[in-house]
């Protein structure tokens, strides 16, 4: 499934805000069908990079090609062909989930058939008459993912999809992301949870202060570090506290 075809090409991308350099001359490529992670601390420039590729922000300089389309000259075609989940996107609080899905179908100009079927895929069918403002954090993220996929895009952008979720909701969202990936879609996500990157990503780029400082598979990057003679201060146990927590409280979703 993982091809070697480059589906996103970022070349010498720079974004300045007045005197702040948010993204500093970065270049990378994403291959078709992979899960690509942009990692980094807050303020590293991950979201800015993503939003430039999504055509929501204009780059100061540099070039970005998405599936053969230049984001500056073909921004409308790019918008139509990618699925976007923003870091904190909102929806009309007074509309039901079914109404919101129909609205987004209208915005993307696609036919969606029965909206309940879409909600079912994300375990939200019981919430079809709920207003968006009544959803829990995990439900909101799953619903947001449903609108991201409404026009069946082959490239998906997820900006910190699991930030603020409890461990059950996070594990559940990982499952959803794996399913979407298994459908053959390319996924670009940002996160500052390294465990999440290890679980989901085929390759990661580590960003800091607007620059990409390393790119590789999680396995290779760890091996490289070990090769330098690095040792953890404490020996790693076979399980983490999160494993304990999930073992005790179960992996099933909690509906707040």
């Amino acid at each position: 499934m993982k091809g070697t075809r480059t589906i996103i090409q970022v070349e010498n991308l720079t974004k300045n805000y007045e005197d702040l350099v948010a993204v500093d001359n970065i270049s990378f490529e994403v291959r078709e069908g992979e899960v690509f992670g942009l990692l980094g601390p807050n303020g590293a420039g991950k979201t800015t990079t993503l939003e430039i590729i999504e055509t929501l922000r204009k780059p100061t300089s540099g070039k970005v090609i998405v599936d053969g389309l230049d984001i500056e000259h073909d921004s409308w075609k790019v918008k139509s062909s990618i699925g976007v989940q923003l870091q904190d996107s909102g929806f009309y609080p007074d509309l039901t989930l079914v109404e919101l899905l129909k609205m987004f179908a209208g915005l993307y100009q696609v036919e969606i058939g029965d909206p309940i079927e879409i909600l079912k895929k994300f375990s939200l069918e019981e919430k079809n008459k709920s207003y968006w403002q009544k959803l829990s954090g995990g439900q909101r993220q799953r619903f947001s993912l449903a609108t991201t996929l409404i026009h069946n895009p082959k490239i998906i952008f997820l900006d910190e999809p699991t930030t603020g979720l409890d461990p059950q909701a996070r594990v559940n969202l990982w499952e959803e992301i794996r399913k979407i990936h298994a459908e053959g879609r390319t996924i670009i996500l940002t996160t500052h949870y390294m465990q999440e990157a290890e679980e989901l990503c085929d390759r990661v780029a580590i960003m800091d202060q607007g620059k990409i400082i390393e790119i590789g598979t999680p396995h290779d990057l760890i091996e490289e570090l070990l090769a330098t003679g690095f040792k953890r201060k404490r020996e790693v146990k076979k399980a983490t506290l999160e494993d304990v927590f999930l073992q005790l409280t179960g992996k099933h979703l909690r509906e707040e």
Binding site: S75, K77, Y92, P93, E99, L100, G106, L107, Q109
Partner: peptide, 20 residues
């Protein structure tokens, strides 16, 4: 960079803004 036809998005926004 021709923008897609905006008729359907217009009616979507108008209808669902009205409901809201």
């Amino acid at each position: 960079n021709k923008s897609p036809n905006q008729i359907r998005p217009f009616f979507s926004i108008a209808l669902y803004s009205l409901i809201a």
